[in-house]
Amino acid sequence: TGIVNVSSSLNVRSSASTSSKVIGSLSGNTKVTIVGEEGAFYKIEYKGSHGYVAAEYI
């Protein structure tokens, strides 16, 4: 489990890349469940599926 540490919002992406499609966003202080790690990204549970967020902001 981690907490989103941004002042505005954090993009949730379809894969572990900044060039991948943005599938949603999370606001600051949102609690997320981390299920894996790929490079600089965490794989998280997101809306019944999975998404990827930049690990530096969690």
Rank of each mutant, 00 (worst) to 15 (best):
T1Q: 12
G2N: 05
I3D: 04
I3P: 03
V4Y: 04
V4P: 04
V4N: 03
V4I: 08
N5T: 11
N5I: 13
N5G: 06
V6Y: 08
V6A: 10
S7Y: 09
S7N: 10
S7K: 13
S8L: 10
S8V: 12
S8A: 10
S8H: 15
S8N: 10
S8P: 11
S8D: 11
S9K: 12
S9A: 11
S9Y: 13
S9G: 14
L10F: 04
L10M: 06
L10V: 15
L10E: 02
L10W: 03
N11S: 13
N11G: 08
N11V: 15
N11M: 14
V12Y: 02
V12A: 01
V12S: 01
V12G: 01
V12W: 02
V12P: 01
R13F: 15
R13M: 15
R13C: 09
S14A: 15
S14P: 04
S14M: 13
S14Q: 14
S15W: 08
S15Y: 08
S15R: 11
S15P: 01
A16Q: 03
A16K: 03
A16P: 14
A16D: 02
S17Q: 07
S17I: 06
S17Y: 07
S17L: 07
S17R: 07
S17V: 05
S17C: 10
T18C: 15
T18N: 13
T18A: 13
T18L: 14
T18F: 15
T18M: 14
S19F: 10
S19E: 12
S19Y: 10
S19T: 13
S20W: 05
S20A: 13
S20D: 03
K21N: 10
K21T: 11
V22D: 03
V22R: 05
V22M: 06
V22Q: 04
V22W: 06
I23V: 07
I23T: 03
I23L: 09
I23Q: 02
I23G: 01
I23K: 03
I23C: 05
G24A: 04
G24V: 03
G24F: 07
S25K: 14
S25W: 14
L26S: 01
L26A: 02
L26I: 12
L26Y: 02
S27T: 12
S27C: 15
S27A: 14
S27G: 10
G28W: 13
G28S: 12
G28T: 12
G28K: 14
N29L: 11
N29M: 11
N29E: 07
N29T: 07
N29V: 06
N29G: 15
T30K: 05
T30W: 07
T30A: 11
T30H: 07
K31Y: 12
K31G: 05
K31F: 12
K31H: 10
K31C: 14
V32D: 00
V32T: 02
V32M: 03
V32I: 08
V32A: 02
V32Y: 04
T33V: 13
T33G: 03
I34N: 01
I34V: 06
I34E: 00
I34W: 04
I34S: 01
V35Q: 05
V35W: 07
G36T: 05
G36C: 08
E37T: 14
E37C: 15
E37Q: 15
E37A: 13
E37V: 15
E37S: 14
E37I: 15
E38T: 07
G39R: 05
G39T: 03
G39I: 03
G39F: 05
G39N: 08
A40W: 07
A40Q: 11
A40C: 13
F41D: 02
F41M: 04
F41E: 01
F41Q: 02
F41P: 00
F41H: 03
Y42R: 02
Y42M: 06
K43D: 01
K43V: 10
K43E: 05
K43G: 01
I44C: 05
I44G: 00
I44S: 00
I44N: 01
I44V: 05
I44F: 01
E45C: 14
E45I: 14
E45R: 09
E45V: 13
E45P: 04
Y46Q: 00
Y46L: 03
K47P: 02
K47R: 10
G48Y: 05
G48L: 06
G48N: 08
S49M: 12
S49T: 12
S49C: 09
S49W: 08
S49E: 08
S49Y: 09
H50D: 05
H50M: 09
H50F: 15
H50Y: 15
H50E: 06
G51Q: 02
G51C: 03
Y52P: 00
Y52T: 00
Y52V: 01
V53L: 03
V53I: 07
A54F: 14
A54H: 09
A54R: 13
A54K: 13
A54W: 15
A54V: 13
A54S: 10
A54L: 15
A55W: 06
A55M: 15
A55P: 02
E56F: 09
E56G: 07
Y57I: 03
I58R: 01
I58C: 03
